[in-house]
């Protein structure tokens, strides 16, 4: 079970669905919902030194106003290594654009790419993926 999971999405319903699914399947103790990438960055910067407040998993949407998911990833690159090491980013989007998928795959911080909506199966997939990577990049 994850400690803190953050969902970054401008769509309010998706935030709610995400929170409900995570709670339903007891995927995390605490779900942090932010409705924009800018707010997500602000949160991360604000709690940079409070390890218990930082997310160990971020579900990141791509299409968002002001700062989209990729721009967030660029900004994220500038954060402290210590924080990044702890955190996994999953792309969670409706985008069927192959370029988005390719672009996401190129980012060193993105663990996986999945289409909305979030579901119990997909959460399971994240855990499987996490286990796969445990022995390698994450540690």
């Amino acid at each position: 079970m994850h400690d803190n999971v953050m969902i970054v999405d401008d769509n309010e319903i998706d935030l709610i669905v995400g929170k409900r699914v995570i709670e339903k399947f007891s995927f995390a103790r605490n779900v942090i919902l932010v409705e924009s990438a800018i707010k997500a960055m602000e949160y991360l910067e604000a709690h940079a030194d409070e390890e218990d407040k930082l997310p160990d998993l971020i579900f990141l949407d791509i299409n968002m106003p002001e700062m989209n998911g990729f721009e967030f990833l660029d900004a994220y690159a500038g954060l402290a290594e210590k924080m990044k090491r702890k955190c996994i980013i999953m792309m969670l989007t409706t985008s069927a654009h192959p370029e988005d998928r390719q672009r996401a795959a190129k980012s060193p911080y993105v663990y996986d790419y999945m289409n909305k909506p979030l579901s119990g199966d997909k959460l399971k997939q994240v855990d499987e993926r996490d286990c796969e990577n445990n022995g390698t990049a994450n540690k």
Binding site: I13, D14, V17, R20, V21, N63, S95, A96, N115, K116
Partner: peptide, 22 residues
């Protein structure tokens, strides 16, 4: 963007439906 904008609400709906299914 149209496809995205059209699909985003659909995926939201599917999200809600999956919640209902639980």
């Amino acid at each position: 963007s149209v496809s995205h904008d059209l699909r985003a609400p659909l995926s939201s709906m599917l999200g809600i439906i999956s919640l209902m299914e639980y």
